[in-house]
Design a protein around this nucleic acid. Sequence first.
DNA 1: GATTCGATCGGAGGGATAGTTA
DNA 2: TCTAACTATCCCTCCGATCGAA
Lengths: 171, 171
Amino acid sequence: MKTIEVDEQLYRYIASRTLHIGESASDILRRLLSLPTEAVQANAVEDHLTQQAAESIEPEQLLKMTLDEVQLSKEESAIARFMLILSALYRAQPGNFSQAADIKGRKRIYFSQDPQALLENGNTTKPKQVPDTPYWVITNTNTGRKRLIIEQLMQAMGYSADTIAEVCNKV
Amino acid sequence: MKTIEVDEQLYRYIASRTLHIGESASDILRRLLSLPTEAVQANAVEDHLTQQAAESIEPEQLLKMTLDEVQLSKEESAIARFMLILSALYRAQPGNFSQAADIKGRKRIYFSQDPQALLENGNTTKPKQVPDTPYWVITNTNTGRKRLIIEQLMQAMGYSADTIAEVCNKV
DNA sequence: GATTCGATCGGAGGGATAGTTA
DNA sequence: TCTAACTATCCCTCCGATCGAA
């Protein structure tokens, strides 16, 4: 990977051309420049291939994607970044995510495929669907807890402490 | 300046398109993407070349860009779309925009380079800066008036009724 | 009247902080 | 009782329809 510098305006222009959540700057530029996409892995990410294929994405690559995505997104709210990260985590390892998604608080449950379940365990949890995912999360939490939720989730998914810290740092 | 990551191959591709020694990545990308050279920053003493280059963009092209941009942007609020359109209108023809920007209401003035002026003519006008522009607009209006402001502005800039209708339709 | 314009105020979303429970 | 963990109330900001004024 190489790093290049672009002015603010151009940066925003590129970001505005995002077609799929999680697209990297390279993906976007290649499309804009009508260049061929870079073989295998890029495709696996874009077209929701089989669960298996998706499972095989390297955590390292996920990390990069996630951070890029959050970076590129103009979203300034913690909720928006939270959702983006969760979406990326699911995309990289759906099966693993599902196993990890049963983390809960004292009364609340944090994830569910059924929003009703979130509503029933706790008041005003403000469930929202994680984009491109069958999962819903609670949303009525402070930013610290959003980080804790990601931390616990990623731990259960088997990420290293460093990776977790880096991701949480972006919320 | 922002930093983006591109893969090796793409990096080499971009580098290979250098036309002038010392050209920045932004310059090259702008040329490859057929974007105008960098727009004038707020308040800056504008260099004539930039100004002239920007003025010469075809209205047709602007229209397409504008609509695309608004379309692609995930911005949900009328205000966000409003700002995007104004920004694009300025970018395409800064001088023309400046001449047209003196439209006003009964008490309020709609545009100014000085937010204070907007604050002073009217209560709670909620001025916001038009992105990449020395101009500020009032923001505390209903959506209908936002359309009217764009309509009047574009009329004063000399756009055809069809074009105006199409753009207003996107607000 | 009819129409245009202004800006108040209600509603929604976000999330810190006050409150509760273990 | 004291503290740490968790909850959810409630305040703040942003948006823009609605209603009042010209």
